[in-house]
């Protein structure tokens, strides 16, 4: 069970959180202007790296806030957490 540092509440058990998949996949400004392929990429395509991955979490059983985390998918180490709207921190 991960110990996830919620940027609002501090470190809490993973059981309090809900996973939200890859971060920084913004809803397109004008979906109507996208080709089917571009829209499909938004809907269905996500990165799946081994290593650092920026992803969304929601502290659903706590403050109910969404935030982003950079987690190493191979080791589960969380490099950093940051609030929605903040840029992805530079990680090694």
């Amino acid at each position: 069970m991960l110990l996830i540092p919620c940027p609002w509440c501090g470190p809490r058990d993973e059981a309090e959180f809900h996973y939200g998949g890859q971060a920084h996949v913004a809803y397109p400004e004008d979906p109507g202007a996208l080709s089917d392929e571009e829209w499909a990429r938004y809907l269905f395509f996500r990165d799946n790296p081994k290593g650092a991955f920026a992803e969304r979490w929601s502290h659903s059983a706590g403050c109910r806030r969404w935030f982003n985390a950079v987690r190493d998918t191979a080791t589960n180490e969380i490099h950093s957490v940051y609030r929605v709207g903040e840029p992805r921190p530079v990680t090694p």
Binding site: A26, Y27, R56, W66, V84, G85
Partner: peptide
């Protein structure tokens, strides 16, 4: 809440 927080704050 997800849309309000992450897309339309």
């Amino acid at each position: 809440e997800e849309w309000l927080q992450t897309e339309w704050p």
